[in-house]
Simulated scan of single mutants.
Amino acid sequence: MALSKGDDFPIHQTAEPVAYAGTDRNFYDRYFFNGYAPDGGGFFAIAFGVYPHLDVVDAHFNVIRDGVQHCVHASREAGMERMDLSCGPITIEIVEPLNVLKVSVGDHEGISAELTFTGRHFPIEEPRFTHRTGPRVLLDCTRMTQNGRWTGWIEVDGERQELATGTMGTRDRSWGVRPIGAPDAQPIPGQAMPSFFWQWTPINFPSGSLFFHVNNDTLGNTWNTRAAWALEGASADVLSEGAGSMRTRLSSGTRWPSGGSTVSLALPGGPEEITFEPLGRFQMKGLGYTHPDWRHGMYHGALKVEREDIVLDGLGPLALDNIHVQIPVAVTSDGEEGIGVFEQLIIGPFAPLGLSEFIDGAG
Score class of each variant (00 low, 15 high):
Asn224Lys: 00
Asp217Cys: 09
Leu320Pro: 04
Met83Tyr: 01
Ser264Val: 07
Leu3Ile: 15
Phe61Cys: 09
Gly119Cys: 05
Asp309Cys: 09
Val325Lys: 01
Leu139Trp: 14
Pro278Arg: 03
Thr142Ser: 15
Ser252Asn: 13
Val305Trp: 00
Asp84Arg: 14
Gly166Gln: 11
Gly314Asp: 03
Trp223Tyr: 13
Gly253Cys: 01
Gln13Arg: 14
Asp172Lys: 08
Ile274Val: 07
Met83Trp: 00
Ile310Val: 07
Glu93Leu: 10
Ile346His: 04
Pro317Glu: 07
Ile203Pro: 01
Asn26Ser: 10
Asn204Asp: 15
Lys304Gly: 09
Leu54Phe: 13
Ile203His: 01
Ser104Phe: 11
Val57Glu: 12
Pro123Trp: 00
Tyr289Arg: 02
Pro257Cys: 02
Phe32His: 05
Glu159Asp: 14
Gly260Gln: 07
Leu355Asp: 07
Arg178Val: 03
Lys304His: 14
Gly348Ala: 08
Ala2Asp: 12
Arg82Gln: 15
Leu231Met: 13
Ile188Ala: 08
Asn99Leu: 15
Ser240Cys: 15
His12Lys: 12
Asp237Asn: 09
Ser251Val: 15
Arg143Lys: 08
Pro52Ala: 08
Asp55Asn: 12
Asp7Ala: 01
Leu355Met: 03
Trp200Pro: 01
Gly67Pro: 04
Gly106His: 11
Thr130Asp: 08
Phe197Ala: 13
Thr332Ala: 10
Pro202Cys: 05
Tyr299Pro: 13
Ala362Phe: 05
Met83Gln: 05
Val100Thr: 11
Glu306Thr: 03
Phe211Val: 06
Pro135Asn: 10
Asp172Met: 07
Ala78Arg: 04
Gly244Phe: 03
Pro123Lys: 02
Ser174His: 00
Asn34Val: 10
Asp184Ala: 14
Leu279Trp: 04
Ile92Arg: 00
Asp237Ser: 07
Pro183Glu: 08
Gly361Thr: 10
Leu98Ile: 07
Ile46Trp: 04
Ala45Gly: 12
Glu343Arg: 07
Val105His: 03
Ala78Ile: 05
Val329Lys: 04
Gln69Cys: 00
Glu277Leu: 11
Gly260Phe: 04
Trp229His: 03
Ala243Glu: 14
Thr222Ile: 12
Val329His: 03
Pro189Asn: 09
Pro328His: 02
Ala78Asn: 06
Ala351Trp: 05
Gly269Met: 05
Glu77Lys: 15
Leu250Val: 10
Phe48Asn: 11
Asp107Asn: 13
Ser195Glu: 15
Val50Asn: 06
Arg249Met: 12
Pro352Val: 00
Ile188Gln: 00
Gly280Val: 00
Arg25Cys: 06
Pro194Val: 12
His121Ile: 04
Ala78Gly: 09
Ala192Met: 15
Glu357Arg: 01
Pro123His: 06
Glu277Pro: 03
Leu54Gly: 11
Met168Arg: 10
Asn216Tyr: 10
Thr275Glu: 14
Lys102Ser: 15
Ala319Gly: 13
Gly335Asn: 05
Glu343Gly: 02
Thr133Gln: 12
Arg226Gln: 14
His108Leu: 08
Thr133His: 13
Lys5Cys: 13
Arg136Thr: 12
Arg307His: 02
Trp198Gly: 04
